[in-house]
C-alpha cells in the first residue's frame, strides 16, 4: 500500500446525499405552493432511475452496488422530476429519466464520463418530442392532489381550466402581442418577483444552494457566474428598453433559473473545472438562456444553454488553466 495512508471520510455517496438534502427546501416549497403531486413524480423518477441504472450496469457487466449506492442516479432523477411539469403523465417522466440515465449517462461510459448534463439532455429530448405536454403547467392554486394524481397517472387531460401559462410564457406572449409590460405583470400569473408561487420555490432552491456552498460541495464561481451572466444581460436590455424587456430579477426568479444556478450548472462532471472556467461556463449558460427565453419559442432556454456550454467545456478548460503557485500568469504555456 502506498501513501497517503489516511483519507478524509469523504465519498461520492456523501456528496450526492448532500445535494439531495439541499433540494429539500425547494421541494418543500413546491409541495406548499403547487401540491404534493411533485412527490409522486419524484418517486416515479427515482424508481425508474435506479431500475434502469441497475439494468444498464448489468448489461455493461459492472459492479452493481457501488454505483447504484453512489446516489448520482437519484440526483439525476430528482432533477428530471423537478424540471418537468408537475402534472406530466408518468410515462413522460419515465422517458425523461431513461434518456438521462441510459442515454446521456451510461451510453457515454457512466458516472464521470458523460459530456452532457443528463437532466438537461432529458429535458431537451422530451420538450422536442412532447412540446404540448411540456407546456402544461398547473395553475398555482388550482389543483388538488387527487386531480394531480389523476393527471400523473395518465388520466384525461381536459385541461383548459386547470393549467395556465407560466410566467415566462405569459411574458413572452404578451410582449409579442405588443401588450404593455406593466399590464402583463399585473395579471394573476405574476407575483412579487417571478411567477406567483413559483418564486417561493426559487427561494427554496436558493436556500439549498447556500447549504451546498456552506458544505463546500460547490464553489461560488458557478452560481455567481450564472446569476451574473443572466442578470447582466437581462439588466442591460432592461435598462435600454424597460418596456420591452423584463427585469433581471424577473428572469432570475422565473423558470428554472435558481435550480440551474445551484443544481444544474454545478454538475462537476459536465462543467468546466478551473475556477475561471467555471465562471465563464456558468455565465455562458446564463447569457444563452436569456437569449433563448427572449427570442426563442421554448418555455425556458436553460436546458439548451447548458448543452451548448457543455460542448464548450474542453475549450474553456484548455483556455483557463490556472497558473501554478509562484508561476506568473503570462509564463504558463
Amino acid at each position: 500500500m502506498t501513501s497517503p495512508h489516511i483519507r478524509q471520510p469523504a465519498s461520492v455517496q456523501r456528496v450526492m446525499m448532500t445535494v439531495l438534502a439541499a433540494l429539500l427546501p425547494g421541494i418543500a416549497a413546491y409541495v406548499w405552493q403547487v401540491g404534493a403531486g411533485i412527490l409522486v413524480n419524484i418517486a416515479i423518477a427515482s424508481v425508474t432511475a435506479l431500475a434502469s441504472e441497475a439494468l444498464v450496469l448489468r448489461l455493461r457487466k459492472r459492479a452493481l452496488w457501488i454505483t447504484l449506492s453512489d446516489g448520482s442516479a437519484l440526483v439525476t432523477a430528482w432533477l428530471v422530476a423537478l424540471i418537468l411539469p408537475s402534472i406530466a403523465p408518468w410515462w413522460l417522466t419515465v422517458i425523461g429519466v431513461l434518456v438521462a440515465i441510459v442515454g446521456a449517462k451510461h451510453l457515454y461510459g457512466g458516472i464521470g464520463q458523460n459530456p452532457f448534463n443528463p437532466a438537461m439532455a432529458a429535458y431537451c429530448a422530451v420538450i422536442i418530442a412532447y412540446p404540448a405536454l411540456m407546456s402544461q403547467w398547473p395553475h398555482i392554486d388550482g389543483l388538488d392532489f387527487a386531480t394531480q394524481l389523476h393527471l400523473i397517472l395518465g388520466g384525461s387531460r381536459e385541461i383548459d381550466g386547470i393549467t395556465g401559462a407560466t410566467a415566462l410564457d405569459a411574458m413572452r406572449t404578451g410582449l409579442r402581442n405588443q401588450v404593455d409590460i406593466h399590464t402583463i405583470l399585473s395579471s394573476g400569473t405574476f407575483g412579487f418577483a417571478g411567477g406567483r408561487g413559483w418564486e417561493w420555490i426559487a427561494a427554496g432552491y436558493l436556500v439549498g444552494g447556500f447549504f451546498l456552498l456552506a458544505r463546500r460541495v460547490i464553489t461560488w464561481h458557478l452560481p455567481i457566474g450564472f446569476i451574473v451572466g443572466m442578470g447582466f444581460t437581462a439588466g442591460v436590455a432592461w435598462l435600454v428598453a424597460p418596456d420591452s424587456f423584463p427585469s433581471p430579477l424577473f428572469h432570475l426568479a422565473s423558470g428554472g433559473a435558481m435550480l440551474a444556478a445551484f443544481f444544474i450548472v454545478t454538475d462537476p462532471v459536465t462543467g468546466a473545472s478551473s475556477p475561471l472556467g467555471k465562471f465563464i461556463f456558468a455565465a455562458g449558460v446564463g447569457v444563452i438562456a436569456w437569449i433563448i427565453r427572449t427570442f426563442g419559442m421554448y418555455p425556458d432556454g436553460i436546458a439548451f444553454a447548458v448543452l451548448l456550454m457543455n460542448i464548450c467545456v474542453p475549450l474553456i478548460n484548455h483556455a483557463t488553466q490556472p497558473a501554478l503557485v509562484g508561476q506568473r500568469k503570462e509564463a504558463r504555456p
Binding site: V15, V269, S273, L324, Q327
Partner: peptide, 25 residues
C-alpha cells in the same frame, strides 16, 4: 489505518485541485 475503500470513477468535483498546495489540477 483502514485499508482504502474501492476506487470509484472521478466526478471532477475539483476537491483535489482545491487542496493542492502547488496549484495543480
Amino acid at each position: 489505518f483502514s485499508p482504502p475503500p474501492p476506487e470509484q470513477p472521478c466526478i471532477r468535483c475539483g476537491n483535489c485541485a482545491n487542496s493542492c498546495p502547488v496549484g495543480l489540477q
